[in-house]
Design a protein around this nucleic acid. Structure first.
Lengths: 162, 162
DNA sequence: ACGTTACTGCAATACAGTTGCATCAGGAAC
DNA sequence: GTTCCTGATGCAACTGTATTGCAGTAACGT
């Protein structure tokens, strides 16, 4: 009843392996600074997040990618690590139409256009929504630092399909 | 780990029972016009949607309310009816942080401010976002008639809780 | 009144995520 | 380098939400 999910992301400028490794270590240092511990599992998960070809990954995507190299890392560890990283503000989690959540690095700020039928995701530049978010922050008691916006519509494919 | 969900909605101007009944029949007529059939279950579900004190109800809320009067109506019927009504454009469905979806009538157009920690919902007037949605529609191939916007932040209570 | 076929109840199932617990290991202190 | 405290992990069982196949029922156009 729901087509397989696709993600439309800008073609990430693939960074050099060395750069990735530096970024991995920077994030791990953040975990340590928070009183957390750096384990082989966490390193693998963070690296996998940074090297995913699509910026938006599901927990299961990530678990599969990580387990390809480290079969001993359990699904629940992936979930717990993702929770920790989200808590730290390193990644954002967005929930699409009840078909699970996708995660992406918080560094590259943007919002999401989601297809209500098939779950396809397109990015919206943060600038486009910044003014309205500021206006909104003035009218509500909700905290809107680090706001995450999801706009649901119909992707071109589903639009064509009727 | 997650507080019970609360919904902050404007205090709906409770309509007269007679008006409600007329609206129920209007929606049911729409179902019939779509080639669907009107059953006791569907009538009960639609009436329950129209008389809910909170504009935003979960499928389980609704099932419980309906079953109080019609114990024989199954949960799956509620889900299927909600799907049908959403398909027809009578109701909108919004998905909060993986804690299930809430439904509301599509007549009273608005968007949602959602607490990322506890799932509390506050309404945003449609006018506030209309201009930016128009601008967005010009930049994307997504169809944005009937757009649904969910903005995630932190509600005052969770903000205070740290 | 009839016949078609949409709708329903049911139970089994899928799916995404969570949790309690015993064990393991990171890393600060010594 | 060793010790020790405590955070992280694997596992398996579980929760909650939603979906589905099927056989029986009933709505409603004719």
């Amino acid at each position: 009843m729901q087509e397989p999910m696709t993600h439309v992301s800008p073609p990430g400028p693939r960074p050099a392996p060395e750069e990735v490794e530096a970024e991995v270590e920077a994030i791990l240092a953040g975990i340590r600074a928070d009183g957390g511990r750096v384990t082989a599992g966490r390193r693998a998960i963070v690296r996998s997040l940074l090297t995913a070809e699509d910026h938006h990954v599901t927990a299961d995507d990530l678990a599969a990618r990580v387990q390809a190299e480290h079969p001993d890392i359990h699904r629940s560890t992936v979930y717990r690590t993702l929770d920790a990283l989200e808590e730290m503000g390193v990644i954002d989690r967005i929930t699409l139409g009840s078909r699970g959540a996708v995660y992406h690095l918080a560094d590259h700020a943007h919002h999401h256009l989601v297809c209500g039928r098939c779950g396809a995701v397109e990015e919206i530049p943060a600038e486009l929504l910044a003014p309205v978010l500021e206006a909104l922050a003035d009218r509500t008691a909700f905290a809107l630092d680090r706001p995450r916006v999801a706009i649901t519509g119909l992707c071109p494919a589903c639009r064509a399909a009727g």
